[in-house]
Write a protein that binds this DNA or RNA. Structure first.
Lengths: 414, 414
DNA sequence: TTAATTTTTTCGAGGCTCGAAAAAAAGAGC
DNA sequence: GCTCTTTTTTTCGAGCCTCGAAAAAATTAA
């Protein structure tokens, strides 16, 4: 913050507080908002009446009177679903999910399609995304153009959240999804890392479990991580950062999908489990796409008896555990969410993970570290993506200095 | 930020901006401050006249007219050295440095003493620090009590910056320096990690080289790191964090001073170099305090010919390089400062460090990463410590709502 | 129907920043 | 030495913003 705070910044921030309070709480009254924001009732009254006049908020007449108390009943405020909308797009290996989200966060429409991402051309892939969004927007009732698109992809995005720098789902690099979608559809677009979206979603869904500090580790074909630190989503300085899966576990170690040697992913990714359980050499080339069934069969075999499968999971757990220990050395220990297909094998992974953490700087707290599992990552990614897009709209709403109110009768001039 | 912005926060922030601008720039004029803060001239005028009335700032009559231009000459504003003072204390293995710093950042007095930190009792050590500060304060001319003490130590501090949780310079853990010094001397005290202070100092000294993002790696008997990310000093959530030296380089690897196996320090710390060059086993117990001369002899031997010494430095560089590569995977690449005695051997370390980084996720930029060396870490630690203490005073100054002005004539009431 | 209670709005006071104008403090030119 | 020009700094009124107190509104309890 090198720049001074001007007078209008104050209003903007307090408007953001009010919108944020309404989004976080479920239909709070003005008095409740005043309590959580610690602003005075008069300020909340002024700001909320502005926001209602602008159409962002609505007074909700709850049919069931919440609590028949004495006194003037509280008036619940809610987000006006029709005020605006956003699009959340999730691009995974061979699949493309699109959702239309109302301003209040409800899903208005949704679509999934298959897409051969690995074999498509660069432009072809980008155009497919444009087309999918266009299709989604055209098939519903006639609506205003959404205010924002958020696109989540596995891989590395740039710091301006507009480009996909690298991803395992496509052989192409540096795809400018942001500028392209903006040009073709006229909608500002951000590109986000999928694991970061998982972290965002976890915080929204279970704010008491996933508070200011936690790790979300995605165990799937690749290994990803999203990290909340001091209440903020952690990102790199030039990119999405947090490339946990490609931290080096063993120098000169197993061959990774990324071409390097000894990455955590090269021990804990699905392809690594298959390679290791099959008794292949660590330098055998990684398989492309492993089916979920194959991994489950491996896990069952590992549960059944000692053998190559169990050893493979042990090596995977060790890689994850040492990696997490290194994270703890940097960030300090925090709760961990194990997300994705790998969560189904967490019963086999937990012991080696904890054993490895105990060997690291985070080790003194090894027993106290809480793990939770969440096998299905897709709903989280979509939800995080939607909330990220909505956060942009909320910022815009907060910044919109009490709208010019042109052609808007019923509003007295001061 | 869950709490609303009230009206007085605005003034507080803008006062902080002005104080900060004066501290950063060298005696700027009001107009220059207005330019850097983007506040209006009237606001700067009002705030700076308040700050002058309160005694924090002074108008500096520079003997040499900076630039004989036409028009009313600018009046330079400076920090009033006599306004307040702070104490910076640096506790290292067997040494204790204390400095009295004026509000303008100049060193008013300074003292060093030897101290057998490894053999002293817990209370004894703490009392020695109290006594050293008391001694420093008593020997000069009679002054007001300093506003703040900042204590820098190698090791891990807690998140409230008041306790030393663990340190290699003493066998004791969890020493409450903060509360103790505050109780005994009546001066609020913060305890800080030494490498974090190095990072702070680098940013103050060479803001263009060490800007918003850089790593400061201390190579000494132990391995430490301070990290600036997005303009902020990086710290853990419960502790000072950033324990680079105790990230695991090789699982089940060499024995570290901390008792664990395979830490980066166990390959790159002074004791590790000596152990490795002597042909000792990786599990040989680490030596306590290695003299600087011994390391320089090792480095000379390594420069002279291929052999065990050169191999030791190569292993050290590899450990550092892989560790930095892992940092780059999380934070993204950034300039690196190699600080401390190890900087003198950087000519031998650079090649293996770069080679290792090239094997990691940060590898694509391996050649572009800039290294700078700074062999003498003590001045940096003391400087960072002083600036940290002064930052607290600046915050207080900013928060002090235009002082009651009691018994202060010559100030018209509005 | 009246009293009590709680929420929400209204209103004036006090602060803060800003732009414009005025004041201040120099050099330039004659 | 005097006036004009230029630049910095201060002054002053306008416009916002938040706050506390009081008023208004909307309900239950008696």
């Amino acid at each position: 913050m090198t720049v001074g705070v001007r007078h209008d910044d104050l209003r903007r921030r307090n408007r953001a507080m009010v919108v944020g309070a309404v989004r976080r709480a479920t239909q709070p009254s003005r008095t409740e908002i005043a309590a959580t924001t610690r602003l005075s009732n008069s300020t909340i009254s002024a700001i909320s009446s502005d926001l209602i006049a602008e159409g962002a908020l609505v007074e909700v007449k709850s049919g069931e009177t919440a609590l028949a108390r004495r006194g003037r009943p509280q008036v619940a405020l809610g987000l006006n679903p029709g005020f605006d909308s956003v699009v959340s797009v999730v691009l995974t290996l061979n699949q493309l999910w699109t959702s239309l989200i109302s301003y209040d966060g409800t899903v208005a429409d949704e679509a999934v399609q298959r897409l051969p991402t690995m074999t498509m051309g660069k432009d072809e892939l980008a155009e497919a995304v444009v087309e999918a969004v266009r299709c989604l927007l055209q098939r519903g009732p006639r609506r205003r153009r959404p205010a924002r698109i958020a696109l989540a992809v596995q891989g590395i995005t740039d710091s301006s959240d507009s480009r996909l720098l690298w991803s395992p789902i496509t052989p192409h690099s540096d795809i400018a999804f942001g500028p392209l979608l903006e040009e073709r559809l006229g909608i500002p677009t951000t590109v986000q890392n999928d694991c970061n979206m998982i972290a965002v979603a976890l915080k929204w869904r279970w704010p008491q479990r996933y508070g200011a500090d936690f790790f979300a580790v995605l165990l799937s074909n690749g290994i990803g991580m999203g990290l909340m630190q001091k209440g903020q989503l952690f990102t790199g300085t030039h990119s999405s950062g947090g490339e946990f899966g490609h931290m080096i576990h063993v120098p000169h170690g197993a061959l990774c999908r990324c071409g390097r040697r000894g990455c955590i992913e090269a021990y804990a990714g699905n392809y690594a489990l298959v390679r290791s359980a099959a008794g292949g050499a660590e330098t055998d080339p990684p398989a492309a796409d492993i089916g979920q069934a194959e991994i489950e069969a491996l896990a069952d075999a590992a549960r059944a008896s000692e053998g190559r499968e169990r050893a493979a999971f042990r090596r995977a757990g060790e890689a994850i555990g040492y990696g997490m220990g290194n994270l703890f050395a940097l960030f300090d220990p925090a709760p961990v969410a194990i997300v994705g297909p790998g969560a189904l094998a967490f019963d086999i992974l937990e012991e080696p993970i904890r054993a490895a953490i105990a060997q690291t700087a985070g080790g003194q707290h090894s027993g106290a570290i809480s793990f939770a599992t969440e096998p299905n990552e897709m709903p989280l990614i979509r939800e995080g993506c939607a909330m990220t897009a909505l956060a942009f709209v909320d910022d815009q709403v907060a910044a919109r200095a009490s709208a010019p109110a042109a052609h808007q009768p019923g509003r007295a001039m001061a």
